[in-house]
Design a protein around this nucleic acid. Structure first.
Lengths: 138, 138
DNA sequence: CTGGATCCTCATAGATACTG
DNA sequence: CAGTATCTATGAGGATCCAG
């Protein structure tokens, strides 16, 4: 799932689905959610911002494995969705801070629920995978 | 891995993450969640199965836009995670039914919360995007 | 009907280098 | 520090054919 803001960034299929749904009714909210959190980094970024505003490189260090470009792209996307607020202090060196908006904090709640689910079911998941992988046929 | 949140974050989730880190597991729960629902189709598949067991082609028709291969792959993945149960009736023609396991149903809850969030914030999101796209620099 | 296997493509992640 | 620009390899995903 693309996190690029513009529809041009989406796969043709997703673009067409978006077109289908843009008739206003928007039957399936899941597609909307997926546009936001369906990529690898948005969830992590939101969760990490939940603790408070962070500067670019601080955030980058918090989210292990994210590249500079991906953080930029992700933050831009979240900013576009109105989930993140970008604040620039025109000092030198420049100081750019990212913070969750109220809407950003509100989506952090269900996301957190998902995280808690993962914590609770961690062992079960691991177990299920092991069982499945050990199965004769697969 | 990862989130070096310094526990300054007061959020329970980050606390859990930190706790998990210290027990040597080394993996952030959000990464686990992402492995499950981070792809385009798992969320939709789970939601569509929440209503009850479904056969392959029924499911395929429910999830608009999914290809045969992607549905197969997605279901296999979910089955491996222990979220979906695959049942084969050796009739002719064969009848294969997919159903959520208890764990599958349990993850459907937070996922549903996300969906509700999307419904509530649909207009805000649309609005934010419009504002952002209208901005001078964009 | 249910899906496995193959091939192919195009978008996207990420590395690298550069700028203000 | 906080990005932008560019390039490329990877792999997700679609199309198609095959099989039980």
């Amino acid at each position: 799932m693309s996190i690029h803001a513009k529809t041009e960034g989406k796969t043709p299929l997703l673009a067409s689905m978006a077109a289908m749904e843009s008739d206003g009714s928007g039957s399936c909210p899941m597609r909307e959610v997926l546009d936001i959190i369906g990529d690898s980094w948005s969830l992590l970024t939101i969760i990490n911002l939940q603790a408070g505003p962070r500067r670019f490189n601080v955030l980058r260090r918090m989210i292990e494995g994210i590249s500079q470009r991906m953080l930029t792209v992700t933050l831009r996307s979240l900013e576009r969705e109105g989930l993140v607020l970008r604040t620039v202090k025109p000092t030198s060196p420049p100081e750019v801070t990212y913070a969750l908006t109220p809407m950003g904090h509100s989506i952090a709640v269900p996301i957190g629920a998902l995280g808690e689910w993962a914590v609770k079911n961690r062992d079960n998941l691991r177990d299920a995978r092991k069982v499945f992988d050990a199965a004769p046929i697969g």
